[in-house]
Each structure stands twice: as structure tokens, then as C-alpha cells.
Design a protein around this nucleic acid. Structure first.
Length: 522
RNA sequence: GGUCCGGUAGCUUAGUCGGUUAAAGCGCUCGACUCAUAAUCGAAGGAUCGUGGGUUCAAGUCCCACCCGGACCA
């Protein structure tokens, strides 16, 4: 065992899909990164040593062509795209620990090392094969007849298909079919949710074809380390370049990478499940490396009921969405509205409704009214009092929150938020039922009043901690108004019972979630 | 064309092994309250559970076909 920074702390290495450097970040990218960030923050608040990886996939013919069209070098082109992605992640508060780019020298060396490792361990796994077909530059793939209309690819009608014969390195994926079937049979949670696992099982049952690992005419790529028999050196094909980023990010093949690898969780979109659950484990197995513990495929966001797409003009300006009520509100609404295990919808209308009802009216106003009463009746100092029994009702929801957040039943972040919402509603009901403003009028009921307000502040403090992974900035404003020590984000999220607000000096300030102006409705 | 997933009140969803009047939130309507961000609390209304068959004493919940949406593969 080599040393690591925090030897006695459970580590948690999670990754997101690297994004293709051929356009701007959009809502779909944001959903994945926000979800991953929430999980990362949650685990940090559970005390884990978390490493969140995010990055860019920067090679490929399409990038090269787009750059050429813009009259810039590919590296300069991807530098700018990467900067734009990073700017958005910063704006969204994504707490990534590492940002990998596949054009980094270390990544390129790592990809080559992995390929060589496979070739040494399993000399038959890479072989040469020639192939003839219609090649679409847009797809960077050969197309079948069904996808060709009038000599053009149906997905890229503006580009001309080329008939191409080429000799490539192939990877013997078919050899790993049994291995993969065994993997999913013995370790079903390797891919979740279940619907995605079924998809892969169906795919495996149909049988696997070998896949191409290198491509001709692929200049903007990692040079494939094996030379073809005709002396040609080709570029490494996309998946052999992109997938290993999770591994090369740990320092592979340099010593010490085992401290991080294998990853605990790959978070990806449902469209690339196949690559992460079939090709990637097969590559690792071929190289004799450990497999990641789990792949989680989230769904897609639709926009206003329509499929998100650049070409159809159905898109949402991320910057505008963030500026509306701030990054935190956007993070909250997105994860509340879109189930993290399936598809969901996002619209400005829902955004307004969610923000107003959940954050401004329910949670924001709850904090506001409780803090105001502590100021008014107790000069701002939270009284000491025994917990009312009614507070125990929250325990079920706290448990439901953790169940949604810790992956035990899948990564159901929306259920975590729903649980907090129920706690907020319960606190408002409690306030209405106990009527502290009426109790305050009777000096004989002082003890009762103390209990009510201590309970309310304690509940709000708990909810604030539970919300911290979702709204890292806003919760600190609430935390400060509660007069709580330290920061909400530093609180152990799995030790809420220890939160005791007696003696805190509250201070009411500006509403943390101001109600939108009536005219703001779109 | 094949595989997989989804189609439940205006909207978003929950409905575990099939079993009493199909549940919740938001929105809408009415009532209450006044500590609070015209917020909150309570109540009411609102669903032929995509369509058509079938199995069953009993189906949103199982089977078949079809329609619609999505993803992947070809």
C-alpha cells in the first residue's frame, strides 16, 4: 500500500462523462455535472475523501474540421471551448477536483500505455482488418444502407459520404462477451438503473462485434502505439482515447495511480451506457486492471416538452437560466424537476413555479418567520428547550433523504429533495398548529413558546444542512441568519441529531430566496 | 427494422407480491390566521390510469396487438 493524503478516510472517486469539444455547454451537460457535484458534496459532508473528475474530449475529425473552418489550430480551438466549459462550471458552483483534457500530454501517454498493456497481456486482442464502406465525417463512422438517403448520411445531410477502404486495428471485443455477462450476473449493480442494465443484457445476448480501435485520416488524435503491417501509424479511435480518461486522470501508468483507481462511480448519460458497460470493462479486463465499481446512467432533460436539440432551435441559454435566480436556485429546480434515473422536463414556467413555491414561499418564508419571532420574543437568542415529540416525524424523511442520496437504491437525488420539502412543509404546519404568536401573548406559556421556537430553528438548521449539497451558496446565507457556528457545508450531514441551536444569536437579513416580482413571469 | 424504457387528475409524479371509494405536490376555488417574503394553515373540486382485446372471483398493476414519446443498435 502506498501512502495517501487521508489514510483513514473512505475515499470516493467519481467521474462525469468528458464533454465533446465541438460546441457550447448546454442543459444536458449541466444536469450531469450538477448531479455529480451534489453527490460529491454530499459525500464530503459524510466525511469521505472525495475526488470529482470532469473534463473534455478534445480529439477527433469533427473538432479538427470545425477548427479549420474557423481558421484556428485545433489546440487553440479546444483551449477556447474548454475555457467556456470551465467558466460555466465555475458559475454553477461545480466543485470538481480535477479537470482533464484528452489533449494533455499525460493523457495521451496514458492511452498509449494502456493499449500497449493490452497488447502485451493479450497479444491477440488487437488485430488488423480492412474494411470498406460509406464513411460519414459528421458521425465519424461508417454508415449502413438504412442510414443513407440519396448518398448522404441521414444525420448529416450537408456532408457528402465517402466510399472508403481502410485497414485498421481492431479490438477483439467479442472475446469478452462471457466475461461481461458474468460480470452483470454476479454484480448487477455494476450498471444502474435497472432499465439500462436490461438494455445491456439484451445487447450482450445478441452477441458482440469487434470494434475498430484505430482510424486512418485521423490526424487530430493520440497516435495509436501499434504500427500496421503496411508501416502506417493511425490515430486512436474515439473510445480508446476517451474512456481511459478516468484512468489516466489518476496518474496512470505512473506509480501511485492505484491510490485512486478504480473509480467508485462513473456518472454518464444514458446514450453512452454501452461504451461504459461493455467496451470500457472489456478494455480494463484485457489490460488486467480493476473495473470501476459502478456506472450510473442518468436520463435526459427535455425543454418545454420538446427534445433538446441545437438544430431544431430548442435550447436554453444556460447563462440566462443561472442569472434568473442564481446558480443555486437553478441547481435546485433542475434536480427537483428531473428525476436523476430517467428523463424529465424543464421549462421556464416550471422554473418559476418551483422556485416560488418551494424556495421562496415554503423554505425561505419559514426561515424568515421563525427568525423574526426569535428576534421579537427572545431578543434574537435561540432558547434552550426540550424537543417536542412532533419533531420525531422528521426522522422518516431524513432517512428517505439519505436513501436517495447515498446510492443504496440508486442515485435518486430528486427523492432527496422531495424529502426535505416534506420536512419544510411539516415545519410550516407545526407553526400554524402551535401558533407561537398567540402563545407569546400569555406570559404563563413562556416555556411552551421557548419549545416551539427552539424546535423551529432546529428544524430549519437541519434542512439547511440537508440542502447544502444542492445550494452551496444560498445555504450559507441562511446559516448566517440562524447565527449558527461555522458553515452549513462543513456540517456532518449524517449527524444531524447533534445539531443544537440553543444560544445561537439569529439575525434576520434580506430574504435569501426573494419572491419574484409579479412581472417576471414569462 | 430490432432491443429497452416511458405514456396515471390542467402540470409534474407515486402507485411494492394484481385485492376495499387510484395517492401526493403545484396550479385553480372557498375558508382560517396574521409571526412571516400578499407568505402560511385547512377544505373542496379535478383521472373512462395511451387504445383495443385477453387471463382472473378481482388489473393502473399480468399477457397480446396497436398508437405516441425517448434512448440505443442495425
Amino acid at each position: 500500500m502506498t501512502t495517501r493524503s487521508k489514510p483513514d478516510v473512505p475515499r470516493f472517486y467519481l467521474t462525469t462523462a468528458i464533454d465533446y469539444a465541438n460546441g457550447d455547454p448546454h442543459l444536458g451537460h449541466a444536469l450531469e455535472k450538477i448531479g455529480a457535484d451534489v453527490i460529491a458534496r454530499y459525500r464530503r459532508q459524510c466525511g469521505d475523501d472525495v475526488h470529482l473528475l470532469i473534463g473534455m474530449d478534445e480529439h477527433g475529425q469533427k473538432v479538427q474540421q470545425t477548427a479549420a473552418k474557423d481558421g484556428v489550430a485545433p489546440q487553440a480551438f479546444t483551449d477556447e471551448i474548454a475555457a467556456r466549459f470551465q467558466a460555466i462550471w465555475a458559475k454553477l458552483g461545480i466543485s470538481y477536483d480535477q479537470f482533464i483534457r484528452t489533449t494533455e500530454p499525460h493523457h495521451k501517454a496514458g492511452v498509449q500505455a494502456l493499449i500497449r498493456m493490452i497488447a502485451e497481456r493479450n497479444p491477440d486482442d488487437f488485430y488488423e482488418r480492412s474494411y470498406t464502406g460509406m464513411y460519414c465525417v459528421g458521425c465519424e463512422a461508417f454508415k449502413q444502407d438504412a442510414d443513407i438517403v440519396e448518398g448522404k448520411c441521414v444525420l448529416h445531410a450537408t456532408r457528402t459520404l465517402e466510399e472508403v477502404e481502410e485497414r485498421n486495428w481492431f479490438f477483439r471485443l467479442s472475446k469478452y462477451q462471457g466475461f461481461l455477462q458474468h460480470l452483470l450476473a454476479t454484480n448487477p449493480s455494476f450498471i444502474e438503473p435497472e432499465s439500462r442494465r436490461n438494455e445491456i443484457l439484451g445487447l450482450l445476448a445478441q452477441g458482440l462485434d469487434d470494434i475498430s480501435a484505430s482510424r486512418a485520416r485521423l490526424d487530430w488524435a493520440v497516435p495509436f502505439p501499434l504500427v500496421l503491417s503496411n508501416g502506417e501509424t493511425q490515430g486512436t479511435y474515439v473510445w480508446f482515447d476517451a474512456l481511459p480518461n478516468y484512468l489516466t486522470a489518476t496518474g496512470f501508468p505512473e506509480p501511485g495511480y492505484e491510490n485512486r483507481w478504480p473509480a467508485d462511480l462513473h456518472i454518464i448519460g444514458k446514450d453512452i451506457t454501452r461504451f461504459h458497460v461493455v467496451i470500457w470493462p472489456a478494455m480494463l479486463e484485457a489490460a488486467g486492471l480493476p473495473l470501476p465499481k459502478q456506472v450510473w446512467a442518468h436520463g435526459f432533460v427535455q425543454l418545454g416538452g420538446e427534445r433538446f436539440s441545437k438544430s431544431a432551435g430548442v435550447k436554453l441559454d444556460l447563462g440566462e437560466a443561472i442569472d434568473r435566480y442564481g446558480a443555486d436556485a437553478f441547481r435546485y429546480v433542475l434536480l427537483r424537476e428531473v428525476p436523476f434515473d430517467s428523463d424529465g422536463n424543464f421549462s421556464w414556467e416550471r422554473f418559476e413555479e418551483r422556485y416560488t413555491s418551494d424556495l421562496a414561499n415554503a423554505f425561505g418564508n419559514l426561515a424568515s418567520r421563525a427568525i423574526a419571532m426569535v428576534e421579537k420574543y427572545f431578543d434574537g437568542v435561540v432558547p434552550t428547550a426540550l424537543r417536542p415529540e412532533a419533531e420525531l416525524d422528521d426522522d422518516t424523511d431524513v432517512a428517505a433523504y439519505h436513501a436517495g442520496m447515498n446510492g443504496s437504491r440508486g442515485w435518486l437525488l430528486h427523492e432527496g429533495l422531495a424529502a426535505v420539502s416534506r420536512m419544510t412543509a411539516r415545519a410550516n404546519e407545526y407553526t400554524a398548529a402551535t401558533t407561537p404568536w398567540a402563545v407569546a401573548k400569555d406570559p404563563a406559556r413562556a416555556a411552551e413558546l421557548e419549545q416551539i421556537l427552539a424546535s423551529l430553528i432546529r428544524r430549519i438548521a437541519r434542512q439547511t444542512v440537508l440542502l447544502a449539497p444542492f445550494m452551496p451558496t444560498k445555504v450559507e446565507a441562511v446559516w448566517a441568519q440562524l447565527g449558527a457556528p461555522g458553515t452549513a457545508g462543513a456540517q456532518r450531514i449524517d449527524a444531524l441529531a447533534e445539531l443544537e441551536p440553543a444560544g445561537w444569536r439569529v439575525q434576520k437579513g434580506e430574504g435569501v430566496f426573494p419572491r419574484p416580482a409579479p412581472a417576471a413571469t414569462t
